[in-house]
Amino acid sequence: MKAKRAAVPYGIWMVIFIIVPMLLVLYFAFTTQEGAFTLQNIATVGRYSNVFVRSIWLGAVATAVSLLIGYPVAYIIARTRACWQSVLILLVILPMWMNFLLRTYAWMTLLEDSGLINNLLEALGLGRVHMINTQGAVVVGMVYNYVPYMIFPLYSVLAKMDPSVIEAAQDLGASQARVFWRVVLPMSMPGVISGITMVFVPAVSTFIISKMLGGGANLMIGDLIDMQFLGSSYNPNLGSAISLVLMVLILICMGIMNQFDDGESKGGGIPL
């Protein structure tokens, strides 16, 4: 009973700040500015399908890169001595203590045509490379900002893994590579899934990063929604509709991911 009562404050919080806003989004998405029911907003979303495709594509690339970078990092941290683990984890967290905008500004100055990297390249005689305002720059920004969210769930799964299970695999004749592909990776799938979720969702809906590092040409859904509420093309009804469609798309993506996870944990055995 006590436990139930303790949940009341959060229950109230949830209703006011989660349930009600969701219903508002739903309401705005299906009404005109005068408040009449309409499907026009949803239909209009279709016009921006290229933005959706770009967002999901860039989000997916950023997630994949984060996984490729984050997995080895998490693996190495989980395998170091306990006293060093907390230091390494701190190093991963450290950039997150800086303001998000500041971090992204820093990348602007790094990637600019006359930025630090280009100056360095020229000094080395390699010539300048145009990096800012490209999709690559957006991906770099997203990876930099979100990779800790990939590392943490992977680290916690890998650190908890029983070392004797790995020894058992070696004992049964598996080389290091086989141990990884057949035991470590499948056993860390829950961490992979939650890492992907935690990077993909914010990456798809990001708006500052794409605006600052991607220039005008690489508009993402987040920017589109931003424009509907704060920009010149003020239209909260359309903004709500876009948000709603984005939410549904993310839900579908996550559903597919979780399906994959279930399949793994049941262990794809060949039935007798």
């Binding site: 020894e167 004992d171 035991v183 499948p186 793994e264 039935p271």
Partner: peptide, 23 residues
């Protein structure tokens, strides 16, 4: 270890939790 012709039964069994009995 993986090249030795010995096998071990570990203290806490160390079964692979992601595989069924057959696998």
């Amino acid at each position: 270890p993986y090249k030795r012709e010995v096998n071990t039964i570990f203290q806490k069994y160390a079964l692979f939790p992601h595989l069924n009995v057959f696998e």
